[in-house]
């Protein structure tokens, strides 16, 4: 494979994505100008500026302090200001807030993955649990659990548990589900012929689990973990809302919406999106590395 073919392939895959992303940014700018123009015209009328050019109008609409829709460069500028220029320890540093959200996301994700895996193991090994619990595991997700977030926060606060744990608990509740469902599938994925082979070896259930079921469920585990970590982040952000906007990306969203700071909202939103993309990518990279070491990597 020559590098040139690689480059062509890459361009063929990335080209359409780049074009669509550019189109989105263009639409964003047009929308920003259109949505902010009425307020800007009002401002001109108040300042008695009569003869303004279209160019000036566009320039002004994309540099308002509290626009209806901030232009992309304003958001980037705000993120730059609050990440690079602010000290990490500052209350206004977006890195500080991202860290708060990230820590509860990670704790909730780890707890949720552990719980989900344990449940899946129990379900696969016990018929009664399979029949009685699996429908409830599915039903548990038709409940809009994020609605309970304020309740869990306040109740746990009342018995003296505060800070990271209640938020992680909500992330855990959201993230255990994909892991349970995926792992039940994964632990059942060995073919009957393999299970029979283990039986001819007179393998104990313990050995069947560690040497056959667990290894063959690893790809399923990673697929579920990708979903789990994304939803864990959503849980962490939403669970920051009822704590009264103390810290975290959710708190930034809430504070921004209280004070009409649209640029702040958008920068928190973009930061959350970046965080989600990074986390999902990390799980994907770990997935590839582990599968390669296990000799299961698909080329």
């Amino acid at each position: 494979m020559t590098p040139r073919v690689d480059l062509q392939k890459f361009l063929a895959r990335a080209g359409p994505v780049v074009v669509v992303v550019l189109a989105i940014f263009t639409l964003w700018y047009i929308a920003a100008v259109l949505l902010n123009a009425p307020a800007q015209r009002d401002a001109y009328a108040r300042a008695k500026v009569v003869d303004y050019s279209t160019g000036q109008l566009i320039a002004d609409t994309t540099s308002q302090r509290r626009p209806v829709l901030p232009a992309p460069h304003q958001v980037v500028e705000e993120i730059y200001k609050t990440t690079v220029l602010k000290k990490v320890t500052s209350k206004r540093s977006l890195i500080h807030h991202s860290w708060v959200t990230l820590s509860s996301t990670m704790l909730g994700f780890l707890l949720g993955t552990a719980l989900g895996t344990l449940l899946a193991v129990a379900i696969v090994h016990n018929r009664t649990l399979d029949k009685s619990m699996m429908p409830w595991v599915i039903a548990s997700q038709t409940i809009p659990i994020l609605a309970i977030a304020p309740l869990i926060i306040v109740v746990l606060n009342a018995i003296g548990i505060q800070g990271l744990l209640p938020k992680a608990f909500i992330s855990m509740y959201l993230s255990f589900f994909p892991v349970t469902v995926g792992m039940v599938k994964g632990l059942r994925s060995p073919e009957i012929i393999h299970l029979d082979l283990m039986r001819t070896y007179s393998a104990s259930p313990w050995d069947v689990f560690w040497k056959l079921r667990w290894p063959s469920s690893v790809p399923y585990l990673f697929t579920s973990m990708k979903v789990a970590i994304a939803i864990s982040l959503v849980g962490a952000i939403v669970s920051e809302l009822p704590t009264g906007a103390v810290a975290g990306l959710g708190a930034r969203l809430l504070a921004g919406s209280y004070y009409g700071q649209t640029i702040q909202i958008w920068s928190a939103l973009v930061m959350a999106a970046l965080l989600a993309a990074i986390l999902v990518t990390l799980v994907g990279v770990a997935n590839k590395a582990v599968l390669r070491r296990m000799g299961m990597a698909s080329t």
Binding site: P16, V21, L146, L253, A268, L269, A273, A277
Partner: peptide, 21 residues
């Protein structure tokens, strides 16, 4: 080909965050 990767990415994003906007 342009929208599918973006759609997949957006599906993983915390979209609830647009609520205040």
């Amino acid at each position: 080909r342009g929208l599918l990767p973006i759609g997949n990415l957006v599906s993983a994003l915390p979209i609830v965050g647009v609520a205040p906007i």
